[in-house]
Design a protein around this nucleic acid. Structure first.
Length: 426
DNA sequence: CTTCCACAGGAAAAGCCGGGGT
DNA sequence: ACCCCGGCTTTTCCTGTGGAAG
């Protein structure tokens, strides 16, 4: 087959990395209140006082990590001109760390040179904290701020969130003033923290609300100005942006913003759509990004997201979906729980999975509905039928089938299914 | 210091049943 | 009177921990 030669873009993207995750814009917009709050919460540090412990929370893609990084950078820069204050900051993403122990071990390794790294397991839990305290004590600094991103990953084991904020009070560390900044996507995480942690960790809480369509629009304009050819963004006095572009058709930005606002209020989601729309235009060798590209991009992004969530579902939920898929094929949807359960039992037996009771499957169905995969319709026919729910797919059935087929355990259901359609012998 | 086991605590599942709307 | 929803309680299962034993 003939390959097209690679050649750099001349029409759409000037610098597409601007639209990627992790790009740090020169200016973080639409988060003024939060930045201000954050900065003022760190003021004690500059005055040489013990730092406050902070807790930042809000959904993904609302600027928590970026805000934190910017404020911290600014702090480090400014403190250089101030005598008697020397701040060190260490940042740790706790995403794949699910215990206090692992967080502590990783922190220690961040302090140590590569030759003196410790193993991530094996030490008594008391010792690991002492090692961490020793490292903090030995720091050549007056303050140490520890930023723990995605801290909700550590789950219920919140020991370290008690020990670190209290390190000074308990005289574990005396020469360095320690402050903890926790960042979390999970609203319930804070509530589930033990009382002693809640007390010590959250001197101040900063809430990051989702962006509205207008705010997302400005963020997109700001980035678009850098990302695309023949496009420039101008910041106005009121903080909003004005865009001039030969690449982006009129409603492209506001449409991306609207889709993302409706979906989650996440800047990441909005940027993804814009990026994807640009991709589509490039693939078509179009000179402009049109509204149609955005609609198509939205569908793709949305589809990928659903796909992702579906893949992660436990086997029992997938079996439940499979049952509904069978009914859909037989034109029996919407369908009530009993009918779904019949199919479920057969399917579960066939792949040798545990067969749950109908009560449990009922719960699964509610969950799936809550997640937006299914739609439910309440029926009530009185004495000659009673009341019950009818379920049907809210997502496209072929997408569900696609994902289910990829599941190892469910694969054989489809394998036999292709050759003989004996399943509807009931 | 490792390995093994027992135990606890929590989460998922099962079981129970009153209620709601027609 | 029909039917099953959904809250509540009980049971079972699972995982992680700490302590004892090798």
């Amino acid at each position: 087959m003939g390959l097209e030669p690679f050649s750099p873009d001349s029409t759409i993207f000037r610098d597409e990395s601007v639209l990627r995750d992790g790009y740090q814009p020169a200016r973080l917009i639409e988060r003024d209140t939060e930045l201000e709050q954050y900065q003022s919460a760190l003021k004690p540090v500059i005055n040489g006082a013990p730092p406050k412990n902070l807790f930042l929370y809000g959904q993904t893609g609302v600027g928590k990590t970026l805000s934190s990084r910017m404020v911290v950078e600014r702090l480090i820069e400014d403190q250089q001109n101030i005598d008697g204050v020397d701040v060190q900051v260490i940042e740790l993403n706790c995403k794949s760390l699910n215990s206090s122990y692992q967080v502590a071990a990783n922190l220690i390794n961040q302090f140590r040179p590569p030759t003196e790294q410790i193993k991530p397991t094996g030490y008594p839990s008391g010792m690991i904290y002492n090692m961490l305290f020793d490292e903090l004590e030995a720091l050549d600094a007056t303050h140490c701020l520890i930023v723990l991103d995605e801290i909700d990953a550590i789950g219920n084991d919140d020991d370290i969130l008690y020990k670190l904020p209290r390190a000074n009070d308990n005289e574990n560390v005396e020469d360095t003033l320690v402050g903890v900044i926790g960042i979390s996507n999970d609203f319930t995480f804070r509530d589930n923290l033990s009382a002693r942690v809640k007390d010590s960790l959250a001197d101040e809480e900063i809430h990051f609300p989702p962006y509205d369509a207008n705010e997302l629009g400005n963020i997109l304009k700001q980035r678009a100005g850098e990302a695309f050819h023949d496009t420039s963004a101008q910041r106005l006095d009121d903080g909003s942006y004005e865009l001039q572009s030969d690449i982006l058709e009129g409603d492209v930005i506001s449409l991306c913003a609207a889709f993302a606002a409706q979906d989650s209020g996440s800047a990441r989601q909005a940027l993804k759509r814009l990026y994807k729309a640009g991709d589509l235009a490039r693939d078509e060798e179009s000179d402009v990004i049109t509204e149609a590209h955005v609609r198509q991009a939205d569908e793709i992004v949305e589809r990928d997201k659903v796909r992702d969530e579906l893949t992660r579902l436990p086997t029992q939920s997938k079996l439940t979906l499979y049952s509904l898929l069978l009914l859909e094929r037989e034109d029996e949807t919407p369908s009530k729980r009993n009918r779904i359960y019949e199919r479920y039992v057969m399917a579960a037996k066939r792949i040798d999975a545990d067969v749950r009771t109908d009560r449990t499957i009922h719960d699964r169905l509610s969950q799936l509905t809550l997640k937006g995969f299914l739609d439910v319709d309440e029926q009530n026919k009185g004495p000659k039928g009673g009341s019950y729910y009818e379920y049907e797919f809210s997502i496209r059935a072929d997408l569900a089938q696609e994902v289910l087929q990829e599941d190892e355990r469910l694969a054989e259901l489809f394998a036999t299914d292709e050759t003989s359609t004996t399943l509807d012998s009931f």
